[in-house]
Design a binder for these strands. Sequence first.
DNA 1: ATGGCGCGCGCAGCGCGA
Length: 256
Amino acid sequence: MKLATWNVNSLKVRLPHLLDWLAATRTDVVCLQETKQEDAKFPRAEIEAAGYQVAFSGQKTYNGVAIVSRTPLADVQAGILGFEDEQKRVLVATVEGVRVVCVYIPNGQSLDSDKYRYKLRWLDALNVWLREELTRYPELALLGDYNIAPQDRDVHDPAAWAGNVLVSEPERAQFQALLDMGLSDAFRMFEQPEKSFTWWDYRAAGFRRDLGLRIDHILLSPRLASRCVAVDIDRGPRKLERPSDHTPVVATLSSP
DNA sequence: ATGGCGCGCGCAGCGCGA
């Protein structure tokens, strides 16, 4: 089972990339972020015609998440249970016994911003809800754009990023809190190349110069971590014409 | 590098992303 996450930065623009990528990689489940489309305009028919099912929770202009799966999606729920939030950032569904949690964690903008305080409150709520969800679903995968680079090795230039959102200590502590509840950063379970990034700034030729960050992650519960045989960043889509600024991360799980 | 790009909205130029 191939389980992936990809911030597409507008599904309207990136739908051809998504369909080509699914056909080429035969990915079983992909969590999408920043679809930027209200549900009435979601391209459900195109995705279904490609042989996939899809659940989505979107809004105009900003945010928006979706889960695309070759096999049926059950018990779909949008949002963090018990946390009021107008922003569409969370979608959860069960696929082949796996509780798939798709998240678009807030960016935070800057350390002195209200958006940063929202990000930390949001992460608190996610933590509380996930602990409950984990007890109910021992096979749980948390995939998405975390907007957190967990360690300095996940940052092309840690000195330049010091004091910025995505690398601040409180955010990294929140990421660590997810690991402390028993989840594993699946990417780091394996030997990986140095400078492994999932996002590169559109500006200043960020991708060509490899000025990136690793901020898209797949966290796995112990039961799923024991089934995980590989995790890879697929830089292919980032090389296409009009790419998303993020590229997919893919985990391969062996059969239960 | 703190601009530079790309997106949505909507038809100019701004807010936002990371």
